[in-house]
């Protein structure tokens, strides 16, 4: 018979190895991210690029359907990223840059509805449903437990709870 202990050790080692593999893989990503990515052809300011990405991620690419300006490979999205970068460099705040696009394209260009007025429904209804559902499920579960106890009590004395 194989030693149970030995196998227990084996499986602990297995789990540790799995975690280590994930950790190694992701560490490479994290490590690399902290260095500024060096591109031979251009100089890049990481903080600015981050701001550009943040703004572009929330704008809808007009020539494509569901993609953001950040994700879209289309020429128009590329030019828009350039425009965002230029506007930031010229001293505009991210909110002003976004406002510029809304002014020209309408609210349609925002990929998430502004949390104001009627738009709150799209943000709050799911949260309310989840919270209400949670309360309902837990209360139901408790009621069912009570029903179970009541029935067990009816059924006889030998059933110790």
């Amino acid at each position: 018979m194989i030693s149970v202990k030995k196998i227990a050790v084996q499986h602990v080692l297995l789990v540790v190895a799995l975690i280590a593999a994930v950790a190694l893989a992701v560490q490479e990503g994290w490590g690399a991210q902290e260095e500024s990515p060096a591109v031979t052809t251009e100089q890049v300011d990481p903080a600015l690029e981050e701001q550009v990405r943040e703004i572009a991620a929330n704008l809808r690419c007009p020539t494509c359907r569901a993609l953001s300006v950040l994700d879209s490979p289309s020429g128009m999205a590329q030019e828009m990223r350039g425009l965002i970068r230029d506007q930031l460099l010229s001293g505009k705040t991210p909110d002003e840059v976004t406002a510029y696009f809304v002014e020209r394209y309408g609210e349609w260009i925002l990929l998430q509805p502004k949390a104001e007025g009627f738009n709150w429904t799209v943000w709050l209804l799911p949260v309310l449903l989840l919270a209400g559902g949670l309360v309902f499920v837990l209360m139901t579960a408790r009621r069912w437990v009570q029903q179970g106890q009541a029935r067990a009590a009816e059924e006889g004395q030998e059933g110790e709870i």
């Binding site: 007009p62 128009m76 030019e79 350039g82 425009l83 020209r104 394209y105 309408g106």
Partner: peptide
Amino acid sequence: PNSRIAIDYGVYG
């Protein structure tokens, strides 16, 4: 150049 006029005018395509 860089589609600046197009973006300024909110061109979709």
